[in-house]
Every structure is written in C-alpha cells, then in structure tokens.
Measured scan of single mutants.
Amino acid sequence: PDFTLHWNGITIHFKGIDEEQFRHLRELLDRGVSLEELEELAKELIK
C-alpha cells in the first residue's frame, strides 16, 4: 500500500510499505529524526 505523511511542512510519499513499517516511520518522525536519518531509513526500505 501507499502512505502519505505530512511532516514539518514536507509531504512524503511511501510506496509499497506495510502499515507496520509506516507506523515505525511515524514514531521516528514524532521523536525528531533528522532528514539524514530519514534518507538512510528510506535506503534500507528500498533494498
């Protein structure tokens, strides 16, 4: 499924991740993950 997340004025689209992965990403963003960390995470998910 696809998810869209609005965070700090940025709209991020996640394609092909499951709800569990999306929930994990939201928790990280709510905790204050940096954009660099988010990019690293995205690379991991894409593999």
Rank of each mutant, 00 (worst) to 15 (best):
P1L: 14
P1G: 14
D2Q: 09
F3A: 01
F3E: 00
F3D: 00
F3K: 02
T4Q: 02
T4D: 03
L5G: 00
L5I: 12
L5R: 00
L5C: 03
H6R: 05
H6K: 05
H6L: 06
H6T: 10
W7H: 11
W7L: 13
N8H: 07
G9H: 02
G9P: 00
G9Y: 01
I10F: 02
I10M: 08
I10R: 09
I10N: 06
T11W: 01
T11S: 06
I12T: 01
I12H: 03
I12W: 01
I12G: 01
H13W: 04
H13T: 10
H13F: 05
F14Y: 02
F14H: 01
F14L: 15
F14N: 01
F14C: 06
F14D: 01
K15R: 07
K15V: 15
I17C: 03
I17W: 04
D18M: 05
D18N: 13
D18R: 03
E19F: 06
E20S: 09
Q21E: 08
F22C: 03
F22I: 08
F22W: 10
R23M: 14
R23L: 14
H24Y: 14
H24I: 14
L25V: 06
L25R: 00
R26Y: 08
E27Q: 11
E27C: 13
E27I: 08
E27V: 08
L28H: 07
L28F: 07
L29P: 00
L29K: 02
L29S: 03
L29M: 07
L29W: 05
D30H: 12
D30Q: 11
R31D: 07
R31S: 11
R31P: 02
R31I: 08
V33W: 12
S34P: 12
S34M: 06
L35G: 03
L35P: 08
L35M: 11
L35V: 12
E36V: 12
E36L: 12
E36H: 14
E37I: 14
L38C: 04
L38D: 00
L38W: 05
E39C: 04
E40C: 06
A42V: 13
K43R: 12
K43D: 08
K43W: 04
K43G: 09
K43M: 08
E44A: 12
E44L: 07
L45V: 10
I46K: 06
I46V: 12
K47V: 10
K47P: 09
K47D: 10
K47S: 13
K47W: 01
